[in-house]
Amino acid sequence: MTSTVPTRTTSGAPAADRDLRRERQAWGSRRARRRIATVLLTIAGPLAILLVWEALSRSGAIDSRFWPAPTSLIPAAVELWREDDLLGDIRISLLRILGGFALGAIPAIAIGLAMGLSWPIRTLLMPVATAIYALPKIALLPLMIIAFGIGETSKLAIVALSIFFLVALNTMAGVLAIDQSYRDVARNFGASPLATFWAVALPGALPSIFTGLRLALGFALVVIVGTEFLSARQGGLGDLIWQSWQILAIRDMFVGLIIVGVLGWLLTLALDLVERVVIPWKPGSE
């Protein structure tokens, strides 16, 4: 959001100074009000859903055995935390997501840049990339288990694989969308291909790379929960949700679901923060 602070430097008259001060104050309070409104609205959405849910469950309008009131989930969460190592499950899932994410995204960015910059590489990899991109990645879990065993490696691999093409294709699109004139400028100043890469292709593709990463985060979450469903008793939030469902511990299941949701939200916020640091020049990121 770009806004300008009203400034006036020429006038020395006290009245004008007062006006200016008032103007600045008005501007400042408009901004503060906007910020408060943002926070309130952000909270209002989820809160409204929880309230309706609570009311429906308590009034008996919905079956509270399967739709337990949100407040009744709090003791369940506390118990899970104390007795069943809820924190451990969160940590396991988080490490799988972050590890798989790094493992997939870093080479994907490199390959995506190469695909964007060189048409032979692009033409060579495009059919494979589009085919695998369209495949539901969870269906590849058996193959990952054959290749990497039933331990952590196959879980990292499935997350990495599921986001790889998404990030690669977005990165490629980002490079291809860079205005030709930017490359012309670099060439006109005698930039080597390598210098052009660092000075133009990489920074120019960054916004698209982050679009890819944001989508990938969602995919990683989906795939890891699905994978944990299918890998019984190896921990993680997916395991918690699935095991709770199996023994009809509905409250525990909901705790798991809500934590997965909150985790996704927090990870997206973290990524936004990283983006703001890496792309300070993006309009609207100040």
């Binding site: 205005d179 004139s181 012309d184 400028v185």
Partner: peptide, 11 residues
């Protein structure tokens, strides 16, 4: 060269 239109690097 001074190009027409967008040539100043946004980054």
């Amino acid at each position: 060269v001074v190009f027409q239109g967008r040539s100043v690097f946004p980054w």
